Amino acid sequence: MIRKWEVAKIDSQLNHAIELFKDIMIYGTERVIKSIDHEVFQTYSSEQLHMMQIISKTEQVSPGRLASLQGVHKSAVSNRIKKLSSQGLVKVTGSNLDQRGKTISLTREGQEIVNTSNEAISTHIEGLLAQELESEEIEEFIRIFEKLKTIMKVEEDKA
């Protein structure tokens, strides 16, 4: 039987974990992007790179879904799509499901930009963490984030 103080402790620990997760999402992303000295981060905005990352993960996505995933209005997504399309990084095609709908996908050049930014981010984060984390901590990090990814994916599918 779980006692009230044990439940309170678990709730407190979970709230602390959530706050840490939010801090890392907000400030960690900003720190990483601002501290990477790579041409791709001077050429493209973090919003554009984020959009291309989403498209890369989903392969094809609607503008509405992009807006939802980026937490912005459809007009902001529309502007980003136009700019990236004019640069030959994304292509817009009609949806098979809806005559009015569109799907967005990356071009080969767009995927190369995503690969370049991923490599730069990975190298940078590896440099930040390599001296700070033990092998066991990295294994625990992976275990927890795999579990979080599974939980978040399930929640995403319900939406």
Rank of each mutant, 00 (worst) to 15 (best):
A67H: 02
P63H: 03
K74G: 10
S86D: 15
L49S: 03
S78C: 06
N96V: 14
I81G: 06
I55G: 00
S117Y: 01
V61Y: 06
N115P: 00
S117K: 04
R108N: 12
D98G: 04
E59Q: 14
R108E: 15
S46V: 14
L49P: 05
P63W: 02
G88M: 11
G94C: 06
V61E: 08
D98F: 01
S117G: 02
E112N: 08
Y44D: 03
Q87V: 01
E47G: 08
Q111K: 15
G64Y: 07
E47Y: 08
Q48N: 03
Q99D: 10
S95R: 06
P63M: 04
G94F: 00
V77P: 00
G88A: 10
S95T: 06
S85R: 15
V72D: 08
A67E: 08
L49N: 03
S78G: 09
G88E: 05
R65H: 13
R108L: 09
S45G: 11
K83R: 13
G88L: 11
S85V: 01
K83L: 12
E47R: 00
Y44P: 03
I54F: 09
T93K: 14
S85C: 00
S75H: 10
E109H: 04
A76R: 13
E119P: 01
N79G: 13
N115E: 12
Y44T: 01
K82G: 09
G64P: 00
L69V: 05
N79C: 02
R65T: 15
V77W: 04
A76S: 15
T103E: 12
K91W: 06
T116Y: 01
T93F: 06
G71P: 00
N96A: 13
L84G: 08
L66C: 09
P63D: 04
M51K: 01
T58E: 15
M52N: 03
